[in-house]
Simulated assay, not measured.
Amino acid sequence: MVVGAFPIKDKVAVVTGGGSGIGLAFVDQAQKSGAKALIADLQLTPEADKLVKSSSGNVAFMKCDVTDWSNLESIPSEVSKAFGSDAVADVWIAGAGVFEPKWSSWLYDTEKDHYKAMSVNAEHPMKLTRIAMRSCLGSKKPGVCLIISSGAGITGQYGCALYCASKHAVVGFTKSMAQADYDENFKIVCILPGMVSTPLWTGEAAKAVNKQYSFTEDVCITPADVAEAMMEMITEAKYGGGSLMETSKAKPRNMLESREAYKLDEHSPPEMKSWADECYRPVREVFSKEREVGGKTSGVH
């Protein structure tokens, strides 16, 4: 079974980084399409606060530091608090991200223990996906997780090597998780925007970055443009698990890769199915156990 077409009406979405930019644009589109949304972010911009207050309870906010796994683990319970005890999120958007701040930079190298930018951009989407799968499997319902990467996730840039590496990481993760669509009825996809007109480029603090990367508004798409592409990836059956979509001024909807050719199911050659049955066995056993126990455990062996 695969997720297939997944209309968002009457569903619940979780959006990390939903307090501004692309994430907020998606929240706005989701609630206009009849969905509820939980914004998980450090804070709300005035625009986001206005949306929450005017949504008649369909949009809620929780303070969330995506580098703190206890914050991420609390999201399912926050969904229930916001939208009812039986509410379970159907759509999960890993949207929180940072570009190349001096406080977490390979070039300036000021951190003592780790690059926090990697925690935000790479670890948090992977952990959110794990939580999302446990939540949906435990509720015996299909789900979708969309990770926001970047065009930098398939290219390199000498000026922002750490950022590029973090975005490459989630592209590789998404491709690796394609089989979950067929095995677990859970679709994981990734969108790779080009330059987007967000506070990253338009804010007061971005002036030096703008000069370094020759930013101009005419090469940008809007957060709403990206949100529309995200909605397409989530709702349309042609975007199976593991799919990658580039969206930019030059290529608004460019399917970079679909994992359809790599799926392993009942129609696969016997030798490939036999190989997959052994290779994927530990993964399938863990997910099967989580489905049985209602998704309430972590670290199941």
Rank of each mutant, 00 (worst) to 15 (best):
M1T: 13
V3S: 06
P7T: 11
K9G: 04
D10V: 06
A13Y: 02
G18R: 03
G19P: 08
G21V: 09
S33A: 15
K36C: 07
P46W: 08
E47I: 06
S56E: 15
K63Q: 15
V66F: 05
D68W: 01
S70N: 14
N71L: 06
L72I: 15
I75W: 00
F83S: 00
F83D: 00
A89E: 01
A89F: 09
D90V: 09
I93Q: 05
A94P: 05
W106S: 03
D109S: 10
K112N: 11
K116L: 12
M118N: 06
A122M: 06
M133K: 13
S139Q: 11
C145N: 04
H168T: 01
A169R: 08
V171W: 02
G172I: 08
Q179S: 04
N185D: 13
F186P: 10
V196R: 00
L200Q: 11
K207C: 02
Y213G: 02
F215T: 06
D218G: 07
I221V: 15
A224I: 12
M231G: 11
N254A: 04
E260P: 02
L264Y: 05
E266L: 11
P269E: 08
C279Q: 12
Y280P: 01
Y280T: 08
Y280A: 12
R281T: 06
V286C: 07
V286P: 01
E292L: 11
T297S: 12
S298G: 10
